[in-house]
Computed example of a mutant assay.
Amino acid sequence: MTFPTHQYYGSTVQLPFPSATGGKLPTASISLLWPSLIKELPYYMTLSCSPEVVMSTLCGSFWELEIPCNLVGPWLHPLLNEVLSGTSGTVNHDYEMLALMGAIRRPNISALWIGAATSGLAPKIIQKVRRGRPPLDALAFPWTGCPQSFMDTAGSGPYTFMNAEYISRPDVWRLLHLPPKEGDDLCYRNRPSTPWAPCGASKTKDCALRVTSHLRCNRHEYHYHHWNWDPEEGAVSQDYGFSTTPISTITEYPTDLLEIKKPKTFQKKELDQMASREASLDIFRWFFINGEGIPPETIYEDDWLKEIWDEDESGEEAGEAGDQESQGLAATCRDRVETWLSSVA
């Protein structure tokens, strides 16, 4: 299933040599499993032919709903920089451990994790996750049942459940993404390109009307319905994916597969906040690009977010310079035309 993903991302398939191990015989009869496997085979084939969904799903194993954008670095640091040896995606990493952890966090794609680790896709996954900007595909959640972004969940409780004057920023982002009742010049149709939720809360008085008009509503959420297969020959068929409800992201049942012999300590390394900074830039850039400029809240003056406003200001300056240059060229051309007309007359 991971081979098309290897080709798409330019990764080389590296299969290990087979070795004799003390495997266990299956407890269930293989013949009883065939009907369900045959029924699900088209789903697995479709999933394997969508490298973006496969990579998004695997990278989504590192995402956690309760981790905001400014804590991405501390969240990823112990695993990527201390538990796994080395500092980049190299053969020094303990990919068996990575596959085991991925399978525990996402039990329903455990086989996909084993295939990724076995075929050598793990370095590419770590590379994508390390900077806090993992690839994100909106179809990955309904096709695997694994939420991979705060936008995949609707949240819980009233929108202003703690204080009527405040609303959490993740809820602000969710409400902005809803289709407006009346057309406006804002554009929030596309989801954020990062899975990490914005940190903190906003004052309701500083929010747009398209947000405050929903404060007393029950939770809104999007539901995936289907996509269409449109073959060159034949009728269009509707495909509803594999799972329409979230599946637990952590295994809830104890297992005897883990034989912990003794605790292991790892060398502590200095914390790098680059992933937090990049995740924060991405999620707040989505709000700024689609909105109406810099909001009045003080968080938008933070050093981590200044790059967004600097980009906008430099773009405006470049636009003004371009306008002045165009005006200068137009004036020069006009003078030349007038000079030519005078000489002809």
Rank of each mutant, 00 (worst) to 15 (best):
S11Y: 00
A331P: 00
K39T: 15
D282K: 06
R105Y: 05
S61G: 15
C59F: 04
G120V: 03
I67N: 03
Q273H: 12
V53M: 13
M274W: 08
A235Y: 10
C49G: 08
Q7W: 07
K24F: 10
I250F: 06
S168C: 01
T57I: 03
G200S: 02
C49K: 09
Y159F: 12
T212N: 03
N81Y: 13
T339I: 06
K261L: 14
D94N: 15
H220A: 09
L305V: 14
L329E: 12
E52N: 09
W63C: 06
A117Y: 05
E270L: 13
T244R: 15
E52Q: 13
L136F: 01
A138K: 12
K306F: 02
K128H: 03
R169V: 06
L15N: 05
D230W: 02
G291T: 05
T204G: 00
L281A: 09
D184I: 02
W286V: 10
T265N: 12
W143V: 03
S168Q: 06
L58Y: 06
P263R: 05
P42K: 12
E259Q: 13
I247K: 11
S280C: 07
Y300V: 02
T194W: 00
E297W: 08
N108D: 10
G322K: 11
C69Y: 01
T332L: 09
P35I: 11
S342P: 00
D303Y: 06
R131C: 05
F62I: 08
I114K: 07
R131K: 14
I114R: 05
K128M: 11
A122D: 01
E64Q: 15
E66A: 15
T144A: 04
E233Q: 11
F288S: 11
L65I: 07
R334T: 13
K205Q: 09
G234C: 13
D335C: 14
R130V: 00
L176I: 07
P231K: 05
C333R: 14
P158D: 03
N218Q: 11
E278I: 12
D323C: 02
I289E: 15
Q127N: 08
V53K: 04
G319Y: 05
I30T: 14
A201L: 00
K269F: 01
M97I: 06
T251S: 14
C217T: 13
S213Y: 00
G157A: 06
P74H: 08
I30P: 03
T87R: 14
S19C: 04
L176Q: 10
E52C: 03
Q7P: 00
H6M: 02
A99G: 15
Y222T: 12
G155N: 08
H6F: 06
K261H: 09
E182D: 05
A138M: 09
S280G: 08
Y188Q: 04
V54L: 03
L341T: 08
G132Y: 06
E325T: 12
P198R: 06
E66L: 14
G86D: 04
Y44E: 12
I294H: 09
P195A: 09
S50R: 13
T244H: 15
S149M: 10
L98M: 09
A279E: 03
W340N: 07
N70H: 15
H77M: 11
V129S: 01
F242R: 15
F3R: 07
